[in-house]
Simulated scan of single mutants.
Amino acid sequence: MSDKRKGSLFGFSHAWDGLKAVVRTELNFRIHLIAALGVISAGFVFRLTVLKWIMVLFAIGLVLVAEMLNTAVEKMIDYLKPEIHPQAKAIKDLAAGAVLVSALIAVAVGLFVFLPELMKLFK
């Protein structure tokens, strides 16, 4: 039976396999997950508003998706161009840069959301 005939649940299983693989093989993704759990825990402690939760969850999602896409790009480049090549390096660097930008945005969101909450503690 072809993949298309098995329906949407089969596609979901591929997505789940990809998520399990990135958690299992990518240290940076696991670090981002641990940071996300810390931020989510802090969100409960500070009883964030719905709007702040939305901001935090979107920032977390942005970083995790960027990390997964970076991993996919790196694996694809390694498959297509296993030897060292300046263009392959440039492609990998761009993908890694996207992760950095997403992480910096997440830090900015975190500061915007949590700094006022922390300042309330010291008043």
Rank of each mutant, 00 (worst) to 15 (best):
I40P: 03
T49R: 09
L19V: 11
L80W: 05
L33T: 01
S2Y: 13
W16R: 12
I60K: 01
E67V: 06
F122W: 14
A72C: 01
I91Q: 01
I91W: 02
T71Y: 15
R24H: 07
Y79I: 06
L57Y: 07
G38Y: 12
L121M: 11
V56A: 13
V45P: 04
K123S: 14
L69A: 14
H14Q: 14
P82K: 01
F12G: 11
L115I: 10
P86I: 00
V99Q: 00
F112H: 09
F29E: 01
K120G: 06
F10H: 12
K120Y: 06
D93A: 11
V45F: 06
S41R: 10
A90R: 07
G7S: 02
G11W: 06
M68G: 09
G43A: 09
L111E: 05
D78F: 02
K20G: 04
K52M: 14
V73Y: 01
I40M: 11
H85W: 07
Y79F: 13
V101N: 04
V107W: 07
V99S: 01
R24Y: 05
G18V: 04
M55K: 15
F46G: 03
T25H: 06
V113D: 00
I40W: 02
S8H: 14
K123D: 14
D17C: 05
M1F: 13
G61H: 04
W16L: 15
G110D: 05
F46N: 01
L94M: 08
L111N: 06
I105K: 00
G7I: 02
R24V: 03
A108H: 03
A21W: 06
L19M: 12
I34Y: 15
L94T: 09
G97K: 03
K75V: 02
L115F: 05
D17H: 08
P82V: 07
L94S: 03
G43Y: 02
S102W: 00
I60S: 03
T25C: 04
L111D: 04
A96V: 05
K75Y: 04
V73M: 01
V39C: 03
